[in-house]
Amino acid sequence: MNQTGKKILIGLGVAIFWIGAWELLCLAVASELLLPSPLQVVTVWFDLAKTSTFWVATGYSLLRISVGFLLAVLCGCLLAAFTARVKLAKALITPILKVIRAAPVASFIILALVWIKTDSLPLWISFLMVLPIVWANVEEGILQVDGKLLEVAKVYHLPAKKVWREIRFPSLVPYLLASMKTGLGFAWKSGIAAEIICRPTTSIGNYLQKAKLSLETPSVFAWTLTVILLSVLLEKLLTKLVSQKGKRFEQSKKEGRAV
């Protein structure tokens, strides 16, 4: 059996083990309200998936969080380029970003509820959570560019634009991709948390909260399952993008850059 086959088999075994453990626990608890069975959750999930409400809510949540994430990536890159060049700007901005990193996401959500419209709040929360991650990583990438390659550019009189395109940008790609991978998980979790607290009409968070308030525990599990599935799916998509586009750059980072 090849490596992929082995991996699939191990993954399947682990999944069966945990679903089995869940089922046993469920039998022991014997209360749908406290702990629904895996089969009940899957049944409710399929029932939900048949409704347009489910897809519209999922679509809107995905849209809000994606926009917040992409905006954070863009602003994080611009901010990193700025602070890598201007030391005073770095000194000024660093404490703010450190506070954002250290503060609990719930505090931000509650504070932001005062200032921002409910519908767009998850977008801004995702943005705020991802921004410091992208900024710190990309700035590190900019500062870590190989001086020896820049000397090659200087000797051969490469124009600044070409130096950015051919040397500086490829050097920071591994840092950018790593921050995107980490940031995506943060964006998704904080975005859903914001939805649960501020409850925009069409959102996963709102339906999750509704299910909780009406004590529909299988429904809570089904919506949570949706969040997990989407999180895994998005991470897989990004990992694929990283392995396709960033393989060469990642390799150069591991091998110690210029060869």
């Binding site: 020896k148 000397e151 090659v152 051969y156 490829p170 060469r248 390799q251 091998e255 210029a258």
Partner: peptide, 12 residues
């Protein structure tokens, strides 16, 4: 035109 002590090739 320079050949440095290290090759200094762009790995990507």
């Amino acid at each position: 035109s320079v050949v440095f002590q290290e090759d200094r090739l762009l790995p990507w």
